[in-house]
Simulated assay, not measured.
Amino acid sequence: MSLESVKAFLAERAPDLAVIETGQRTATVAEAAAVLGLPPARIAKTLSLRKGDEVFLVVVRGDARLDNRKARAAFGGKVRMLDLAEVEGLTGHPVGGVCPFGLAQPLKVYCDASLRDFDEVAPAAGSIDSAVRLSPMRLAELTGAVWVDVCQEIQEAAA
């Protein structure tokens, strides 16, 4: 169902984008990078976060780590990762396939400024063996994302 909801989302809003069904596991940044032939930094990972009762997604480059101080400033308080059990219920996507497309319910989406380092990134597409390639700007446009700076500085060597 999750892969199908992403396909339906893209068919409606971006019919020019194709979901890549790899037939191989792409659930981690390392797995996705190896299967897709991309550096890990270009894998766009989607973090499922909560601040109080508010649940939202933040899409970041694959080698980025959340900076708690920056996140607190950007989101107006302490954020925490969703429990694994909560993720699929709230997003409709299994852990390892979470993306900002075809969500089970509307969630606010943010894109970290770190994504702007690339002309193309590859987020998951709703399953643990799928992805889609698109520009970070297109990703933000399709999801109505707000740009934020919430990740630790990247030591540039493997872009």
Rank of each mutant, 00 (worst) to 15 (best):
S5N: 11
V6R: 03
L10N: 00
L10G: 01
A11C: 10
E12M: 11
R13Q: 13
R13W: 14
A14C: 09
P15S: 09
L17Y: 06
V19G: 01
G23K: 05
G23F: 07
Q24D: 10
R25F: 06
T26I: 01
A27M: 05
T28Y: 04
V29G: 01
A30N: 08
A33L: 09
A34N: 08
V35Q: 06
L36W: 03
G37E: 12
P39W: 04
A41C: 07
R42L: 15
I43Y: 05
A44K: 02
K45C: 12
T46I: 13
S48V: 15
L49R: 06
D53V: 14
D53I: 14
V55Q: 04
L57W: 02
V59L: 08
D63L: 14
A64T: 01
R65S: 14
D67C: 13
R69M: 11
R69T: 13
K70D: 05
A71N: 04
A73C: 08
F75D: 07
G76C: 09
K78W: 09
L82T: 04
L82E: 03
A85R: 05
V87R: 00
E88F: 08
G89F: 11
L90F: 08
H93V: 13
G97A: 14
C99S: 07
C99N: 08
P100E: 14
F101N: 02
F101A: 06
F101V: 11
G102L: 12
Q105Y: 06
P106K: 10
P106V: 13
L107G: 06
L107E: 07
K108H: 12
K108T: 15
V109P: 01
C111T: 11
C111E: 02
D119A: 15
V121L: 11
V121T: 03
A122F: 03
A124D: 00
A124S: 13
A124G: 03
G126M: 06
S127W: 02
S127L: 10
I128F: 04
D129H: 12
A131R: 00
R133I: 15
L134N: 06
L134G: 09
P136H: 05
P136C: 13
E141Q: 15
G144A: 12
G144V: 09
A145P: 02
V146P: 03
V146C: 08
W147I: 13
D149N: 14
Q152N: 06
E153H: 11
E153F: 10
Q155T: 14
A157T: 12
A159L: 15
A159D: 11
